[in-house]
Simulated assay, not measured.
Amino acid sequence: MNYPKGTLAGDLVLLVLLDNSNHPSTISSSGWADIDHSTDDSSMGLESWWHTAGTETSVTIEHLHTSGNVHGRALG
């Protein structure tokens, strides 16, 4: 997932994922802190992380379920 245009080193980046498969995702890049993984006891999941940006411009997210829709947004 690409960072917002204009993100500079030292900026706080928030990443939020909403999925309809209720399976956890992981970020393999170092420095990301998990804020929450919430479910609504059905098939929806909401996950969030934060990170202090460095020189990178994107992050790779590993979603552990191959079907369903995952929608994400990185905010800087």
Rank of each mutant, 00 (worst) to 15 (best):
N2C: 11
N2H: 09
Y3H: 08
Y3L: 14
P4Y: 04
P4W: 03
P4M: 04
L8D: 13
A9Y: 05
G10I: 06
G10M: 05
D11C: 11
D11P: 12
D11G: 08
L12P: 02
L12H: 04
V13L: 01
L14S: 08
L14T: 09
V16Q: 12
V16E: 13
L17P: 04
L17V: 13
L18T: 14
L18M: 12
D19E: 12
S21H: 14
S21M: 11
N22M: 09
H23M: 07
H23S: 12
P24A: 07
P24V: 13
S25C: 01
S25P: 00
S25N: 02
S25M: 00
T26E: 07
T26A: 13
I27G: 00
I27Y: 00
I27H: 00
S28Q: 12
S29V: 01
G31W: 01
G31F: 01
G31M: 07
W32C: 00
D34M: 14
D34L: 15
D34A: 14
I35Y: 01
I35W: 04
I35L: 03
D36T: 15
H37M: 15
H37T: 15
H37P: 07
H37D: 15
H37E: 15
T39W: 03
D41V: 08
D41C: 08
M44G: 02
M44H: 08
G45N: 02
G45H: 02
L46V: 10
L46E: 03
E47D: 10
E47N: 08
E47S: 10
S48K: 09
S48Y: 08
W49C: 02
T52M: 14
G54M: 06
G54F: 05
T55R: 09
T55V: 05
T55C: 10
E56S: 10
E56K: 09
E56Q: 13
T57M: 06
S58V: 11
V59F: 00
E62Y: 12
H63T: 13
H63M: 07
H63L: 09
H63P: 06
L64C: 04
H65K: 05
T66I: 14
N69L: 15
N69K: 15
V70R: 08
H71G: 13
H71K: 07
G72P: 09
R73C: 12
R73T: 09
